[in-house]
Design a protein around this nucleic acid. Sequence first.
RNA 1: GUCUCCGUCGUCUAGAGGCCUAGGACACCGGGUUUUCAUCCCGGCAACACGGGUUCGAAUCCCGUCGGAGAUGCCA
Length: 486
Amino acid sequence: MCCSSEKRVRTRFAPSPTGFMHVGNLRTALYAYLLAKSRHGDFVLRIEDTDQARYVEGAVQVIYDTLARAGLRHDEGPDRPGAYGPYVQSERREIYKKYAEELVRKGAAYYCFCGKHEAEPEGEESVSDAACVCPCRSMDPAAAAEMASSGRPHVIRQKIDRSGVSVFTDAVFGEITIENKVLDDQILLKSDGMPTYNFANVVDDHLMCISHVVRGSEYLSSTPKYNLLYRAFGWEIPVYVHLPLIMGRNADGEISKLSKRHGSVSFENLLAEGYLPEAVVNYIALLGWSPKSDQELFRLEELAEKFDVSGLNKSPAVFDYGKLRWMNSEYIKMLSPEAFAEVARPFAALPEKLSSAWPKIAAILHQRTELLSEIPGKIAFLAEVPAFENDLFFNKKSKCSPETAREILTELIPRFEALEALTPEAVGGIISAYAESHGVKLGQPMWAVRIALSGLPVTPGGPGEIMDIIGKDESLKRLKAALERL
RNA sequence: GUCUCCGUCGUCUAGAGGCCUAGGACACCGGGUUUUCAUCCCGGCAACACGGGUUCGAAUCCCGUCGGAGAUGCCA
């Protein structure tokens, strides 16, 4: 029997192996993890693979990888043996069968031989399942059991008394009342012998001693059915923690449950775009939960310390890529220069000749990067000067024009040439000296040299850094080419 | 259609009858610093869905309206 006397907090994350991890699911996992850890409890991973049609090769690995990268370490799971395994539902068939049959014996469920329902034609007054009464419902139990054991295809349905109302309490939403007449005799065991989610989650949560069921609010309206199941078995009902949904906004401004059409919604996509896992975790933690303080940046351990169900919100939250981006930039800035160079490297797409200059390139990129995937675009000019017009030499603020640029380059090129090495300091010194001797703003020669060097009005780093990175030969080549066209 | 839930700046949120001329953050706008841009600093714009109650007093409680979302699968 189970451990209902045990006070230990145990939560679970129970994803279906569909091949990718939706951020909504990740957030559910995060909250389940935080709830458990904030109370020094256990966080369990269970794989819900009861839908064979949706099985995807390698999908379980995606789940492990996601949890690992997000830092959500589970205490038990298929890969971490615990006392309540197996942790994969397809390996628990016999368990569900046994309990489903127990329910039939208790009169809380029945065999149904009706076959699949055809889809109802659109537009008609749809007759809900709840309203129609299956003839199998009133079949003689002994006869039905015999038919079932003789191999006749069947499912097992929950037998629900539709009178009265069901009331339950959710830790987030409070007291919820639902009329029993809207509850249908849902299928517990499918004709292939696999349980439905509706049945498996109850059996497993009980058997695995889950104390707090953390899940999306889409399950709110079916919760009374689960409670009926717990009662039929005589099991203790867990604490429910239903989470507000994460919404997305489409191009027309319409809001609906966040899905692929709203952008990258899987954790792996987000990482591939250059969001740091810590930033994503921090961001989604605050999507629907508030620490009730003005703090917004949290390490995972800190979240586990501060997490409390009372901070959970009831209303749906719109996923805001803009704010995620800001948070990502905060995490990038917090990285040490070495760490930044390392995480950014795979995104850089550097040509061979520049690869040894990576540490220097990373240094000028560090404080100006919000998303790692923007890096190639920011540094492409290092490999090759993009086509540009001489008009680019015009700059109001620094009073620069193609004419002044010509003067500047004419005077400066020999000085750069005379330099042993084009270090940022040496280059800066020469440019400053020019500004001073000509009585112009520093920005003027800076602008001219930058444009000549990069063909861009905006570059990471200034002329000194750029020359240092591309080297003396290449620098002079570019400056001379620019002067020639002036 | 039916049922359930939700409704504070554009977005994420604080607010649990007087502390609210409603606070923070992102975004946006403006200013300053700066070797461009960015970072950084300062400032600004911007919300209690609406209508009734209850109360000396309501963003906070009650009712209604409207709006939004979810559920209604041999998916989870």
